[in-house]
């Protein structure tokens, strides 16, 4: 009886002393690690990987080494949250212009593209885009099979059953960019969160569409929007033949949206009356 207690206590004590000795004799952890520990307390801790680092702690380590990483690989969740942003600003001695960095993801396709056949294969965009570059006439059109809906951590993406394309709810979107990487056709783009007008087409005249007709509802490069804008807020990109927006001049008048003959330009927040038809995932 006593010998059992003695042995157990002795083994426990020896183990404890060994840990204490190793803790004392080993060199202290480097200073950058303590800094990273401090930074990581202000990170969301969800380890989503959207910043490009494997987990929040790795991101914190990168931040503590070079604070410019925050601008090149921004954490979208921190940008949305004032307390976290404040903590990061304090511990890294940064000044962040929140509005300039905040982004929203938009699907750059307005749907209604004709199909070239019926696709009955595996129900993911990745598989569908491998066969004949997808089943829609335009190779830059949203296939609407919903690969992006599965990666969205905020459940902001749903499939519009009428137009058979993915739509992103700008109120839920944090701009993390996970869907941008997921889309096999690269038609989800990150735009500044205070944009008023969205150009919903991924076809520009530089891209050729081999052996395919262009979609009926795509941009026809007519420049009507460019001419309609009275504030010079639309800059015509001559290389790609598509409109680009100068946010500081845009007054949200909607003239370009009305001018567009193909309804490619829309507001960032589409009116909610359509939402009833949207099939949530």
């Amino acid at each position: 009886m006593w010998i059992i207690i003695a042995i157990l206590t002795a083994v426990g004590l020896i183990c404890g002393v060994l840990i204490w000795i190793t803790n004392k004799t080993l060199p202290k952890e480097p200073a950058s690690l303590a800094k990273a520990q401090e930074v990581s307390e202000h990170l969301p801790g969800m380890n989503c990987g959207a910043c490009g680092y494997p987990g929040c702690f790795a991101y914190a380590q990168a931040l503590s080494k070079d604070k410019k990483v925050f601008f090149s690989n921004v954490c979208a969740t921190v940008l949305q949250d004032n307390t976290m942003l404040g903590g990061i600003e304090k511990s890294l001695d940064l000044v962040v212009d929140k509005n300039a960095m905040n982004k929203k993801a938009v699907v750059c396709c307005s749907g209604d593209c004709e199909k070239i056949g019926t696709y009955v294969g595996v129900g993911t965009c990745k598989s569908a885009s491998k066969i004949l570059k997808g089943f829609k006439k335009c190779p830059f059109g949203c296939l609407g099979l919903g690969d992006c809906t599965h990666v969205c951590p905020q459940n902001a993406i749903s499939i519009d059953v009428d137009r058979k394309i993915a739509v992103i709810d700008p109120d839920k979107c944090t701009g993390c960019g996970l869907c941008v990487k997921e889309c096999p056709r690269n038609i989800i783009k990150l735009i500044p969160a205070d944009s008023k007008v969205v150009f919903r087409c991924s076809y520009d005249s530089v891209r050729d569409i081999p052996g395919r007709e262009k979609c009926e509802s795509g941009c026809i490069h007519c420049r009507k929007c460019f001419k309609a804008c009275e504030n010079d807020a639309i800059i015509w990109n001559k290389e790609k033949q598509i409109p680009e927006f100068d946010l500081s001049k845009c007054i949200d008048c909607g003239a370009c949206i009305e001018a567009c003959p193909k309804n490619v330009l829309t507001k960032l927040r589409v009116d909610n009356s359509k939402k009833e038809k949207v099939l949530s995932k």
């Binding site: 083994v11 080993l26 952890e29």
Partner: peptide
């Protein structure tokens, strides 16, 4: 259990510091 747990602790400390 006691020995393995403390061993892992020591190994972890060792790796973390070195």
């Amino acid at each position: 259990i006691l020995v393995i747990a403390s061993l892992v602790q020591i190994v972890e400390l060792f790796i973390k510091r070195t």
